[in-house]
């Protein structure tokens, strides 16, 4: 079992519905977010290319946050989801410093480090993460890459794709169709 998220940058319109859905579903503190939308513009007018990406924790196979955590609070569960154990986290910030995606923050009220969980509480019930389920353009997909019949496996087999900061050596599990 290997959970991955596949995001079609050609279908994303940057509406930020995924961000709001996540904030509501996960009781994210006001002003904070576990996912966000990046607009990446390359080239100069008139040769301009725009890419819209919904970004979040990449649930890396080789997660630097898990490696640098001194208390084993950051850990990887079955399926490859990276989680923070709130009872073990002391809020030292080592994982925040180690994340190439700046996907973690210190919870302003709890002091612990918080981030995207791939909505593990929904996934366990067989549902999609909140961001995926609300996307109005259906540009986000979630599933098991080890299952060759899954939509994510088929998309990655058929379409050209990339991951972010590949050179960081983190083996991320959020893929972008380009």
């Amino acid at each position: 079992m290997r959970y991955v998220m596949v995001i079609d940058t050609l279908k994303c319109v940057g509406c930020s519905d995924c961000v709001v859905a996540c904030q509501t579903e996960n009781d994210v503190p006001t002003g904070y977010c576990r996912d966000w939308v990046t607009e990446s513009v390359t080239g100069t007018y008139p040769e301009v290319d725009i890419e819209l990406r919904s970004e979040r924790c990449n649930h890396c196979d080789n997660a630097p946050c898990v490696r640098t955590c001194p208390t084993e609070a950051s850990h990887i569960i079955e399926g490859g989801i990276v989680l923070v154990d709130r009872d073990l986290c002391i809020g030292c910030g080592a994982c925040i410093e180690s994340c190439p995606y700046d996907a973690r923050y210190r919870h302003p009220d709890l002091g612990i480090v918080d981030k995207c969980t791939f909505c593990v509480h929904r996934v366990k019930k067989g549902q999609d993460p909140a961001c995926v389920s609300v996307c109005p353009t259906n540009c986000m997909y979630f599933g098991d890459l080890d299952d060759s019949n899954s939509k994510v496996a088929q998309l990655l087999a058929e379409r050209k794709h990339k991951v972010l900061a590949k050179e960081a050596g983190t083996s991320p599990n959020v893929y972008y169709l380009i």
Binding site: G31, C33, V37, T38, E39, S40, V41, T42, G43, R106
Partner: peptide, 19 residues
């Protein structure tokens, strides 16, 4: 030229614009 911005209005204290 390459320019990247958060269009979802992300501005988390102590994280943005840099750690």
């Amino acid at each position: 030229m390459k320019e990247e911005i958060f269009i979802s209005g992300r501005n988390i204290p102590h994280i943005d614009p840099h750690l």
